[in-house]
């Protein structure tokens, strides 16, 4: 009766792109449940999501205050844990992650060999790769992750991911808050869980602007480096 895969869409002011994202998930992954975590949007994200949710496969959680991507995702992990899902996926609400790759990510988790799959835009020649400076930043974090965990992950900041039940449990308890993508790779390593990267193509976002502008970029680099390095020397109970 119950579907075992949950697609989590963390959404902050995504009223324009969200219906398209939901519809494409229903097209490419019809047997998955969908959870929209509305992170205290100021626009009609919640209403738009609820309009789509007549099919009962879609659930909407409204968070009363803005928590950021980390807090929103952790809410999704807690929901997935409490409702016994075997696989959780994360897909952005802005439409940059094509739903046709959901199956690719889900399959890897279902094989039972890995606990987190990262959809990578750098393993294929096609698709939108982002701006030059951002790519440099991502390369820096990729090297940092390789030094700290030994894992070779190219697209360390990708938010197109799939998680096993074990990963769901781990991240329900602790998930980095502000910019969680990079540090979560260290958490996986610390917990002895395996991460795999699979190729996807991404689209340039059609609505909204990036959450990180150039000036914030410097802060982002310091902030995430600090979080990631300290996380790698932190003691995690197993």
């Amino acid at each position: 009766m119950k579907n075992k895969t949950l697609v989590i869409i963390p959404a902050h002011n995504e009223e324009k792109a969200l219906p398209g994202v939901i519809r494409s998930i229903e097209t490419f992954a019809p047997e998955c449940d969908i959870l929209v975590v509305n992170d205290a949007s100021e626009d009609n994200t919640s209403q738009v999501a609820r309009k789509e949710s007549s099919s009962s496969k879609i659930t909407v959680i409204d968070i009363p205050f803005n928590l950021g991507i980390g807090g929103a995702m952790q809410t999704g992990f807690k929901y997935a844990r409490d409702n016994g899902y075997e696989v959780a996926l994360q897909i952005d609400g802005d439409g940059q992650h094509p739903a046709k790759f959901i199956k690719d990510l889900e399959k890897k988790i279902a094989s039972g060999k890995v606990d987190m799959v990262v959809g990578s835009r750098f393993m294929k020649e096609l698709g939108f790769k982002g701006l030059f400076l951002r790519r440099m930043g991502i390369r820096y974090f990729s090297v940092l992750i390789r030094l700290l965990t030994g894992n070779r992950i190219l697209d360390v900041t990708s938010g197109f991911r799939a998680f096993s039940k074990k990963a769901i449990t781990v991240f329900s308890e602790y998930y980095p808050q502000d910019y969680p993508e990079v540090e979560s790779l260290v958490v996986m390593k610390k917990k002895g869980l395996k991460v795999l990267e699979v190729p996807v193509t991404m689209k340039r976002r059609r609505h909204g602007v990036s959450t990180i502008n150039f000036v914030d970029g410097i802060y982002y680099i310091i902030r995430v480096s600090l979080g990631t390095i300290v996380s790698s020397i932190r003691n995690y109970k197993n």
Binding site: T59, F65, G71, Q74, D82, Q177
Partner: peptide, 14 residues
């Protein structure tokens, strides 16, 4: 604590 509370409220509302 605020983060945990906010998440809990979201889940409870649902």
């Amino acid at each position: 604590t605020n983060r945990a509370l906010v998440q809990e409220i979201g889940l409870l509302k649902l």
